[in-house]
């Protein structure tokens, strides 16, 4: 292997081992990947590491040599499941992964666990079995301008990050169970993402099972996202395994389940049509998880959204209206039939 050291950076070419470069460079390293395919999985275990490719069209990580990874197993995954890039270590912080594609792994494309300060930018996570970009128990998270498709659960997920302080912006997700999944995570902003062709575009879920970490989805902002054409069918009994751990879901643009103090503003939610049975009946759903390990949805503000052209409903609310604020939304078919703050399109 010929690694060239230049001003603190390490350059890796196809045929060389990225993992060896990571291990040798240690904390604070910048690893630059040349154009080409790399057949290996990686474990970033040092703080301050930046892993940069030439862009997802040019630098591609695919399954090959398996890195020994000391990271907790993905939920529901067997021990032989392999993620493309795992980020985990004792007190690890300030890690950046940018400008590459990660595809075809049996676990997650990128899997970060207990990292403080994580940036995943301009990464394409395609056809990874479980998750595209899976971020668990992390804080200070940025997932920016990524594309994530073809995963059994979510394209991008924040899981059990109660102090996520996350920015998830300008990503595109498709063909997953959930485009973006805010799973028991708080203080996250989801801005200007496009989620299409999933079973649910953007799902914020407060629900935990016995023995899991404390749950909750609090203090989030969902703004200016394009959530359209999410009509895949996921959930138990699904023959392709999409979202098989959950109930049947299809035709959902945005759902807030058991969420507290979430502001939803300026989103376009349209043309979402279920392709099978779904526990959610609208393209925008505000509901409760109180009976299954969560809480009522409380103190949320839903303003200036355009929610049209969906079936069977544009908006479905099962929450205490005295504890929510709806204002200036355009929606045609709603349940209940009349929601103050939701006006039909015909009256434009």
């Amino acid at each position: 292997m010929s690694l060239v050291q230049a001003e603190g950076e390490t350059f890796v070419k196809p045929g060389e081992s990225i993992q060896r470069a990571l291990d040798e460079a240690g904390p604070g390293a910048t690893i630059r990947l040349a154009e080409g395919d790399y057949a290996e999985s990686l474990w970033i275990k040092h703080s301050g590491v930046t892993l940069v490719g030439e862009g997802p069209e040019l630098t591609r990580l695919v399954p090959g040599a398996v890195a020994k990874v000391g990271i907790p197993q993905l939920h529901d995954a067997s021990e032989d499941v392999v993620s493309g890039i795992s980020v985990h270590g004792d007190g690890i912080r300030d890690v950046t992964v940018r400008g590459l594609a990660v595809s075809g792994f049996s676990g997650s494309g990128v899997y970060a666990h207990t990292v403080q300060g994580l940036v995943v930018e301009d990464v394409e996570a395609r056809d990874n079995d479980f998750w595209g970009v899976y971020v668990r128990e992390c804080s200070g998270v940025e997932v920016l301008r990524c594309r994530a498709s073809g995963s059994q659960y979510a394209g991008i997920a924040l899981s059990f990050c109660p102090e996520a302080n996350a920015l998830v912006a300008e990503n595109e997700t498709s063909a997953n169970a959930f485009g973006i999944f805010v799973d028991n995570s708080s203080k996250a902003r989801m801005l200007r993402n496009t989620c299409h062709g999933n079973s649910a575009g953007l799902l914020l879920l407060n629900q935990t099972y016995e023995g899991e970490l404390p749950g909750g989805v609090n203090d989030c902002l969902v703004a200016e996202n394009e959530l359209r054409g999410n009509g895949l069918l996921s959930g138990e009994g699904n023959p392709n395994g999409l979202g098989e751990a959950g109930p049947p879901i299809s035709g959902v643009g945005l759902a807030l389940i058991g969420a507290h103090r979430v502001t939803v503003v300026g989103n376009r939610i349209h043309d979402n049509h279920p392709s099978g049975p779904s526990v959610m009946g609208g393209a925008f759903v505000l509901g409760s998880s109180k009976d299954w390990g969560g809480d009522e949805s409380l103190d949320n503000h839903i303003s200036w959204n355009r929610i049209t052209g969906n079936t069977p409903l544009d908006v479905q609310v099962d929450a205490d209206f005295t504890r929510q604020g709806f204002a200036g939304n355009v929606a045609n078919a709603t349940a209940p039939d009349t929601i103050e703050g939701c006006a039909a399109e015909e009256s434009r």
Partner: peptide, 17 residues
């Protein structure tokens, strides 16, 4: 951003504001 909201909200936006 405001132009987008005005466009999306149409008459509902104008009536409210």
């Amino acid at each position: 951003r405001i132009a987008r909201t005005v466009s999306d909200g149409g008459a509902a936006y104008r009536r409210r504001v």
